[in-house]
Design a binder for these strands. Sequence first.
DNA 1: GATGTACATTGATGTATGTTAAGAAAGAAT
DNA 2: ATTCTTTCTTAACATACATCAATGTACATC
Lengths: 198, 198
Amino acid sequence: MELANFKTYFLEQCELSKDEIEQIDHLIITKTVSKGEFLLKQGEVCNHSFFVEKGLLRFYALNEEGKESILQFASENWIVSDRGSAYFQQPSTYYIDAIEPTTVVLISEDFINQVANINPNFRAHNERLLQNHIRSLYKRVSLLLGASAKTRYLDFIKTYPDVTLRVPQWMIASYLGVTPESLSRVRKSLAKENFKPY
Amino acid sequence: MELANFKTYFLEQCELSKDEIEQIDHLIITKTVSKGEFLLKQGEVCNHSFFVEKGLLRFYALNEEGKESILQFASENWIVSDRGSAYFQQPSTYYIDAIEPTTVVLISEDFINQVANINPNFRAHNERLLQNHIRSLYKRVSLLLGASAKTRYLDFIKTYPDVTLRVPQWMIASYLGVTPESLSRVRKSLAKENFKPY
DNA sequence: GATGTACATTGATGTATGTTAAGAAAGAAT
DNA sequence: ATTCTTTCTTAACATACATCAATGTACATC
């Protein structure tokens, strides 16, 4: 088992030593899902966070009319979860599934506690994650409230250049809160303005 | 100094004893602002959370064209802050000002640490706040992505019945991400459908 | 190579929401 | 009470975006 991304993440982001990482090695549980497979469905309690070692996930809601709204993408080195569901032990109202064949590391409460026992830094890292998450959600809400579809699209490709190239456009449209047709027109208009993302 | 709301909050939400609340009494700092006064402006680091003892605050962003987007209201017993700004010690991109004459309790990192020393419950409470916040932001994003202005308005008055009656409608419009004129039309249409909120 | 499936684009048209402007209603100030 | 200011509503018009339907394109599969 390699898990180069996961281990680098622990070394650099969580400031664990190589030695400490070896200590937790036996706690690591991975799961591999194929394209379209679910890691979380509405109604289930989301008992894990998912660190994406390789692949691409989406986190989305389904409204009463069956319309999907993508809240987040997660490619390599991202963590995705409905942590509130785990925290409050309530069924989630969201779905997580795989856009590409994906390998994730399962992060349970138990795992977090055990790692925190080995190195207390990990708790601080955990809080940093939450704070960052809130920040990004604030920005998301601000843009949805105040910016046009075009502005939101430009922000998206700046923020998630890797994801932009790996997902179908109708998913980006769903993330932006517009129809695929509208996104296609936004792109056409940008092309006319001679816009070059790369 | 009364602060009945703040102390009840600590008793019931944070599970401190009356005795412990007396111990922290001397740490409590309050601030009173009149209508229109700011507690936070873009560019400042937001070093406090604000517990609303009495009154009503708004938390909003200003985009490049000068358009306000209200992210949150905070009436009695709510806490509002750009905690990310404090956490990362970066200037905030948001504003907080008073819609009514308001008295707040200032909650600094120092305050949190001292209270946590007296009763460790407080840290757990703190994390619960963050988790709750993320949940509400997820819901907010889902609605902005997938629901009409009318649906969002109905959700608003259900979620914030007290706020609905205390703020001008153009602020609710700003919270919903529509113009005051649109909100007026939504209300008219609801009236035609014989909708009664109360 | 032929067929099927998923996705992207385009055009015609409809609808929700924005814009502008005016007036009505409600509050605040004098 | 009178005036001034803010807020709300309404209407006419403009625009962004949605919907529906058709076509194009890439790719898989057979």
